[in-house]
Amino acid sequence: MKGRPENLSPEVEARPVILEIDGLTHYFDSLRAVHDFSVTIKEGELVGLIGPNGAGKTTVFNLITGVYRPTAGSIRYEGVQLIGLPSHEIIQMGIARTFQNIRLFANLTVLDNVLIAYHPHSGYGLADSIFRSRRFREREKAMIERSQEFLEIFGLADRQNDIAGSLPYGLQRRLEIARALATQPRLLLLDEPAAGMNPQEIDQLMELIHFIRDRFQLTIFLVEHRMRLVMNICEWITVMDFGEIIARGKPEEVRGNPQVIEAYLGRQAIR
């Protein structure tokens, strides 16, 4: 199958496809950011995308979530073509993402941050909120309760009324993941979740990722710069350099691939 390593277990291969990217190409003016990028992800997988700085990893996420419109190629989510759809519709279909540089609603409370992600599922309209109908009160209460559950899972329950911008960095990262999960995704895109974390925190993060995948039955596609995290948790990995895929396979295969070592680790070592 296109965009997948050959040697995955038949049990995994039998699952339905959730995301199918084919021949994705994107230019910024004349700069080639992504070229002929193909990846196919099946339900329940945990897939990594790695590569040195500027390899085009975040651009791939931006293309999936409709921030940019690709120059060529196709992106299918559960069979639906995503290209040309606005971002919010793509998110509402069940894809959620986090950001490399945290982008919370910094002046709002922690709870509001999560509630905003619930908005498309609020279940009441403008008239309900203006006239404070019973429907409004019921749905609002339910929304708040569900959001509080999320905060509890991420250890943020007692800070729900704090201003999000005032949280320490580690909690902001967690809040961002909580907010992404509140959009009720089936596919979660994590953009460098380990940025700025020390090895101990990365261990905690790995546990967290495993936990949310099982708890919410998610498929996870993550971009990472740090090998430690990717090598340990991903089932298989795609390696990018200069906008092109240079290798794909299970972590141990990728680790031994000379091209990857040259493009990625070699440069990393020099730096």
């Binding site: 979530t65 921030v67 606005p86 971002s87 919010h88 998110i91 509402q92 959620a96 993402r97 950001f99 982008r103 919370l104 609603f105 910094a106 002046n107 709002l108 509001d112 905003i116 992600a117 908005h119 498309p120 907010r179 992404a180 509140a182 959009t183």
Partner: peptide, 15 residues
């Protein structure tokens, strides 16, 4: 409010 705070982020949580 979320649009005021960060329009792009709001769009990317489905607003």
């Amino acid at each position: 409010l979320s649009v005021r705070e960060d329009e792009r982020a709001a769009e990317l949580v489905g607003i």
